[in-house]
Amino acid sequence: MTQTLVKAWTAAKDRLKDAGIDQPSIDARLMLEVAAGVTRTEIVTDPYRELTAEQAAMLDEFLTRRARREPVSHIIGRKGFWKILLQVNKNVLTPRPETEVIVDEVLKAFPEAMPFSMLDLGVGSGTILLAVLAERPAAKGLGVDASSEALAVARDNAANLDLNNRATFLHGDWTAGLADASFDLVASNPPYIPSAVIETLEPEVRDHEPRLALDGGADGLDAYRLLAPEILRVLKPGGMFAVEIGYDQSKAVESLFNAAGAQQVRTTKDLSTHDRVVTGVKNPLETGA
């Protein structure tokens, strides 16, 4: 039996709803777009277009995987973030809207024509680094990650966005081997979920996201203890940092950066009014020993 776009979308929505999926309409549309090779506009303007048998079979496979709580981004292999579209897979954290707060804070601090150097620690798919470089044509950046699989995704994304001439990537352990006072901006979305909490997360995250990008140790703060002094070390005097945090970690992370000598340390909330990003600067008068 042939399916039209509108019938396929409706049936997919119902199937996902029955499976207890949170946003069945959006998820069904995203998977239909990829399976049928259509845009959102075409689903609306040409609703009676028929799917081929191959397209219907692909959509059915997608829906089966989603019902098992595999993230949509892994199924279709892409995710929108800020104003860019990123390839994603099981080796990288799926970009989340909350992380856009970092991009917003950075863009406020660095005017469009200003040349600056950026470091993204735990770059993953390239989310933060590439979103900033896409908006700031005079900037260049380095993305570091401990996962070579994640770096392969980031490199592909940089090439697809035509940013590979301004973005470089390094397999490494945070700031190891990086020179003192070498960046105008350091951004990071480190693992910050307490180890014991991970098993309580939604299956999409618990079972499908890379544990390396989630597990922040017993209290979720392990990465910040390492990063606070190291970020201040690699920042140029007057340079800015922006790190994502868990909703209840503002006070602890601010304290770590203050203890490391940061100035103007503050927390910005996300659209859900949760504490989300800690920013600050390195003393502009600091010259080092």
Rank of each mutant, 00 (worst) to 15 (best):
F81H: 01
I198C: 07
Q263I: 07
A179W: 11
V265R: 02
R68N: 14
W82Y: 15
N189Y: 11
E244I: 03
I75D: 07
V253R: 06
L227W: 01
L226C: 11
A154M: 05
L161M: 07
N164H: 15
V265A: 04
A56S: 14
N165P: 00
V6N: 07
A12T: 07
G288N: 12
L59C: 13
R225C: 04
E202M: 15
E244F: 05
F110Q: 02
N164V: 10
D22L: 12
I84A: 04
G122Y: 06
E42C: 02
G280V: 01
A35E: 00
P203T: 07
V72A: 10
R155G: 08
E209I: 03
Y247T: 00
L214S: 05
A154T: 03
D104V: 04
A252G: 05
G80M: 09
A113I: 07
G288A: 10
K90E: 15
G141D: 04
K251I: 05
T64Y: 10
V278A: 01
T94A: 13
L271A: 14
K236Q: 11
F257A: 01
I84H: 00
S182Q: 13
P47R: 06
G20A: 09
F110W: 06
I193T: 08
L86W: 06
G288D: 07
L256T: 02
E149R: 12
N157D: 04
N160S: 14
P115S: 05
I245C: 00
Q55Y: 11
P191R: 11
Y192I: 03
G126S: 07
A260L: 04
S188L: 09
D270Y: 08
E112L: 14
R66L: 11
V6I: 14
G122M: 09
A109E: 06
A53T: 15
N283M: 02
T175Y: 03
A289M: 13
D207I: 03
A289N: 13
A113L: 11
L271K: 13
Q23N: 15
L51P: 09
V92A: 08
A252P: 01
L107E: 10
I26N: 10
R69M: 12
L163E: 01
A57D: 15
E135I: 06
E286N: 10
I84Y: 02
P111F: 05
Q264G: 00
V38Y: 08
A228E: 06
S25Q: 13
P47V: 11
L170M: 15
L151I: 12
H274I: 08
T99D: 10
A218N: 12
L161D: 04
L119R: 02
W82K: 09
K282A: 03
E112M: 13
L235M: 08
G288L: 09
I198E: 08
T175C: 13
